[in-house]
Simulated assay, not measured.
Amino acid sequence: MVRRVFRLAFIVLAALPLMAFRMPDSGEAREKLLYDVRGAFVTARPDVPRALVIATDMLVDEAIRATVRATMLPRTIIAVRIDRASHMPLLIGSRHEATVTVQAISVSSGEPIAEGTFKTSVFLLDAEEADRQLAERIADRIAGEFRLDGPRRPTIANALFP
């Protein structure tokens, strides 16, 4: 009898935190962070490969031009700064990495309204296409964060789970 009461009390205590949990509405939290991106410019320090900067700029611009918004959203321009680009030779191939800062700037006021930093990397057997592959990773991340359209590059997850 005491054992049953203990079990019941344990179940009730375990369920209390779960009863207080509330999922936000699916569109409520997401729409607040969405912007109508009108343009982008990519900058970098002098030690970052120029081909990486040019390829990133072209790919982000391509995604912006392919995006059409059905609802009015705050208009922004994004400033992409490649803070650091490096490569590490490995036994087989090499790993290329970039640290990127993205800032959303309001078109109407010119004030920065959002900023974020991320790292991305790519492993390649042949380093000839390193800048292009890294630029695609950067552009895909930006397109995903700002929900931009445009041609998506195939990933292994897309290949395995169509």
Rank of each mutant, 00 (worst) to 15 (best):
L59K: 10
V60A: 05
V60T: 06
V60H: 02
D61E: 11
D61V: 04
D61S: 14
E62W: 02
E62A: 11
E62Q: 10
I64S: 06
I64H: 09
I64N: 07
I64K: 06
R65C: 04
A66H: 01
A66S: 09
T67I: 12
T67S: 13
V68K: 14
V68Q: 11
R69A: 10
A70D: 15
A70W: 07
T71I: 10
T71A: 13
M72T: 13
L73F: 09
L73V: 07
P74I: 08
P74A: 08
P74M: 04
P74E: 12
R75K: 14
T76F: 02
T76R: 02
I77C: 09
I77S: 12
I78D: 06
I78C: 09
A79T: 05
A79K: 13
A79C: 07
R81D: 08
R81K: 15
I82L: 01
I82V: 02
D83L: 15
R84V: 05
R84F: 00
A85I: 00
A85P: 00
A85H: 08
H87E: 10
H87N: 15
P89W: 05
P89Y: 05
P89T: 12
P89N: 12
L90W: 13
L90Y: 09
L90M: 15
L90P: 04
I92D: 11
I92P: 00
G93S: 10
S94C: 06
R95M: 03
R95H: 05
R95S: 05
H96D: 07
H96R: 04
E97L: 13
E97V: 11
E97A: 12
E97S: 13
E97G: 04
A98Q: 01
V100D: 00
V100N: 01
V100P: 01
V100F: 01
T101Q: 07
T101H: 04
T101N: 06
T101E: 09
T101F: 01
V102N: 02
A104W: 14
A104Q: 10
A104S: 15
A104Y: 10
A104T: 11
A104V: 09
I105D: 03
I105R: 04
I105G: 01
I105Q: 02
I105N: 00
I105Y: 03
S106G: 03
V107S: 13
S108R: 12
S108W: 05
S108T: 09
S108H: 04
S109F: 06
S109W: 08
S109D: 15
